[in-house]
Design a protein around this nucleic acid. Structure first.
Length: 476
RNA sequence: GGCCUGAUGGCGGAGUGGUGACGCAGCGGACUGCAAAUCCGUGCACCCGAGUUCGAUUCUCGGUCAGGCCUCCA
């Protein structure tokens, strides 16, 4: 049972072989915490959480070490802190908490480590020192720059020819650079900005060095898997790679597999923080269950672009409705037809295996979803056939496969009543009791009046053989 | 200009050298007091051109269209 992953470095799907099956390491570039994050920023969160789950299932829960960084030194953070007249830590703590809460609501497990730049400063400065000693970096006018000529493989990850990088330079080249491609490792802070002491003067780290230093400190170089959005391939990951290799740690390797998720698009516009679109995950989570948003984010293969629309989320919710309905019906059936203790039925085992196989094929979530539906159909068929043994084991397999992907974590009742508060629940139950009485008396007009009343509360009733059930119709 | 993706039915979205993705929506029927759900049945696709092949949506070449990246924070 092998796992295949598409590796950006080789542009091929390869069998995943960890350096040490007893300690599988994965690193993903995380957020800059200066505001609530867009739903697009959560695509890698959900995608790599899924990979984390698959790896844990393969190698053991305690055998996979996952680090996702937090950038808490940044111009946008400085600006925000200045606006509010508070220390940057006030800003970064606030939005990091919100980010983690949103990620959890989207079903993402907490990473093993979540290093912050401000708490990695010693390792960053130490690594810059290593680069200078290795003659891969040089100090100039208060800056320390990485010397791209020191790394013959520069451009290999992004497949960019060195010459083109010079020709395509679109910004004015700073005069203190030896080569236009050289990038900043350390730079002076502007007046009033946070700064840290270093052998090259007080200042702050460049953008790329933090990840390399964090990987070295939290995981140790080289690592098995490095992930992030496609927009990070160049320059960020190219530069990380150059730093990591030239620092002298980990030999010639930095990461054995590079994984990149495609963009999430909002209509015609790229979903990026700079556009200020309104689709904050924080707000979407008030409108939709987290699992529906997670499903929508995984609706397409992770390497493809994904158009984020309301219809996509509605479809995701419908898909989950269907699966939860099967679980609900299975529970209802089993309540009246207990399965023999410990009895297993292999009826749905192939579909369960198909879910795992799809995920192990470079996280093919659409195919995994298809297998999930086929598994649900098997459970449905078992209910129709009144085969308690098959219902019980099929239900267990469906739950297991769903959980592997971070779905079906709620009780069906809780899923269908998402957004209903206690007051509404009590009122609905009372109305349903009244309606049951009306129906028993065959007072159909009264029964329909009550249903209309429930509909006005955004509640839908469904009559079943064992009484009526209900659900909230639309969250939005 | 350079590099890299992608183009599949009404919509979303996999995959494959020759039969079925899957989901949502639609249509017909069953069930239901009426609904919903569920079940049965059903229609709908592979950007254009050339090539390879017995056969191409799938492989090759060309084209068109769309998107992304091309540095030090946008």
């Amino acid at each position: 049972m092998s796992l295949k992953l598409f590796d950006t470095m080789t542009r091929t799907k390869r069998d995943f072989v960890p350096s040490d099956p007893g300690r599988v390491t994965i690193y993903v570039c995380g957020p800059t915490v200066y505001n609530f994050a867009h739903i697009g920023n959560f695509r890698p969160v959900v995608v790599f959480d899924l990979l984390f789950r698959v790896l844990r299932a393969l190698y053991g829960e305690d055998k996979v070490v996952y680090a996702a960084n937090v950038t808490d030194v940044d111009d946008k953070i400085n600006r925000k802190a200045a606006e509010e007249g508070v220390p940057i830590r006030t800003i970064t703590d606030r939005y990091l908490d919100a980010y983690n809460a949103d990620a959890a609501a989207l079903g993402a497990l907490p990473p093993t480590f979540q290093p912050r730049v401000t708490e990695t400063m010693d390792a960053i400065i130490s690594m810059i020192g290593d680069l200078v000693r290795q003659n891969a970096a040089y100090a100039a006018e208060g800056h320390v720059l990485f010397d791209t000529q020191a790394f013959a493989d520069y451009g290999r990850l992004s497949k960019k020819p060195m010459d083109d990088l010079i020709a395509g330079a679109r910004v004015d080249v700073a005069p203190y650079k030896k080569d236009p491609r050289d990038f900043v490792l350390w730079k002076p802070s502007k007046p009033g900005e946070p700064e840290w002491e270093s052998p090259w003067g007080s200042g702050r780290p460049g953008w790329h060095i933090e990840c390399t230093a964090m990987i070295e400190e939290a995981l140790g170089l080289p690592i098995d898997i490095h992930g992030g959005g496609v927009d990070l391939i160049f320059p960020h990951h190219e530069n990380e790679l150059a730093q990591g290799v030239c620092s002298g740690h980990g030999g010639r390797e930095y990461a054995h597999y590079w994984l990149h998720n495609g963009f999430l698009n909002m209509g015609e516009e790229k979903m990026s923080k700079s556009l200020g679109n309104v689709a904050l995950a924080h707000d979407l989570l008030k409108l939709y269950p987290g699992e529906a948003l997670r499903w929508a984010l995984l609706a397409g293969h992770y390497r493809q672009e994904l158009e984020w629309t309301g219809a996509l989320v509605e479809q995701a919710k419908s898909a989950l409705d269907r699966l939860y309905r099967v679980l609900d019906d299975a529970d209802r059936f089993l309540a009246g037809h207990p399965a023999p203790d410990g009895a297993q039925s292999p009826a749905a085992a192939p579909e369960h295996a198909a879910v795992e196989a799809a995920l192990r094929d470079d996280l093919n979530t659409p195919e995994a979803f298809a297998a999930l539906f086929q598994l649900a159909d098997k459970v449905r068929a078992a209910i129709m056939a009144k085969d308690a043994r098959a219902v019980a084991s099929g239900r267990g397999l469906l739950l297991d496969a769903g959980n592997l992907m971070g779905f079906l974590t709620l009780e069906p009742k809780a899923w269908f009543q998402t957004g209903a508060d206690e007051g509404l629940k009590a009122r609905v139950e009372a109305l349903i009791a009244d309606r049951a009485a009306a129906r028993a008396a065959k007072d159909w007009p009264q029964a329909d009046r009550i249903r209309a009343e429930l509909a006005a509360l955004n509640v839908e009733v469904m009559d079943g053989p064992t009484g009526a059930t209900w659900r909230v119709k639309e969250q939005a």
